[in-house]
Design a binder for these strands. Structure first.
Lengths: 187, 187
DNA sequence: TCCTCCTATGTCAGTTACTGACATCAACCG
DNA sequence: CGGTTGATGTCAGTAACTGACATAGGAGGA
């Protein structure tokens, strides 16, 4: 028999989501989450760098998909299109990992808490930087790489918020296509 | 005679900048800053919502310039151009308020500290949202407004980082122009 | 002139997010 | 069977905040 119940991490993840939805992020202490998961607070902080991270612990981060797509992109595609393809792949992956309702609940929690918005922004910025670096490796110089990356990520964010809002029946990847089309019409 | 030295806030602002540059953000406690400014820690937190805010307490925030410019924009300008004009105005304001060297020192501190990057990102996001709202008031719908705002802010960020890097002799507003031109060539 | 309210600050105790050091013990490995 | 490992517990400590209350110049009115 094991010394402890297995999957402490999974239990903490679930407990955190529940508690944040029930009482809100601010009124939930790290100790609360640990207690509901049947572990100590110290164990919580061994698994998650900080209280916010529990909402951002993602087994397959979006960055990867983006970087991979850029590395594999067709030679003659423009830099923006490269990142956009990557972002679309990431969207496919995300939609497979989470239902829209799950994503929406999480989004509601994040939206209600500035501290969590900050962290989300940081993750998006990491994705942007990753794309930038990947572009640089394909020979794209500054500031083109930065702009392409920022713009494509903006498309992703617009698509994501539209998907989550429930204003459309489209899937997340299709929302990306839609937002990309809107961008082309911009200017 | 006054009960306390005047301009406690200004002293804390200066002390914080000094200490962050000397010891780094993480190794500087709120108490350290307060002590150097000749006040108590409690007073520090009365002036700044949290330790990070001391680096972001800006008398005239960039948002304002952007919103104002969008509200005043020419009827026939496209939404992206409206935000871009606003962002350029903001750049003029920022360059007037701070020398490039001041901006660079601050940027170095922020760059070295994830917690500060998060806050910076949040401020940028606030600027984006403000622009989005201002566009909506001019009748621009979603997701166009979101994309225009995000893209223009990306231009600003690219311009700012180029200006601060010292890789060019251009002023900040001219860097914005340059980045905007690079964007037009993108696709 | 004196009284009163206002405001910025000080004082202090408390909560919560984290961190480091060390102990424990099932499981695994030779 | 004994030694090692790894996930967890325990405990003490630091630092970021927060709320409640005290203090005393200064401004304004009676």
């Amino acid at each position: 028999m094991a010394r402890w119940e297995p999957d402490a991490r999974g239990r903490m993840l679930a407990a955190a989501l529940d508690l944040f939805a029930e009482k809100g992020y601010d009124k939930t202490t790290a100790g609360d989450i640990a207690a509901r998961a049947g572990v100590t607070e110290r164990t919580f902080f061994r698994h998650f760098a900080d209280k916010r991270e529990v909402l951002f612990a993602n087994p397959n981060p979006l960055d990867e998909a983006v970087v991979k797509a850029i590395a594999a992109a067709d030679e003659q595609e423009g830099p923006f299109q490269m990142v956009l393809d990557g972002v679309r792949d990431a969207a496919v992956g995300l939609a497979e990992a989470r239902s829209r309702e799950q994503a929406a609940q999480r989004a509601r929690i994040v939206e209600a808490t500035p501290a969590l918005q900050e962290r989300e922004l940081l993750k998006m910025a990491a994705m942007t930087t990753a794309a930038q670096v990947a572009l640089a490796e394909r020979g794209v110089g500054e500031p083109t790489a930065a702009l392409a990356a920022h713009t494509a990520v903006a498309v992703f964010q617009a698509a994501f918020s539209r998907w989550v809002s429930g204003a459309t029946d489209l899937g997340l990847p299709e929302c990306v296509d839609e937002a990309a089309a809107a961008l082309r019409d911009l200017r």
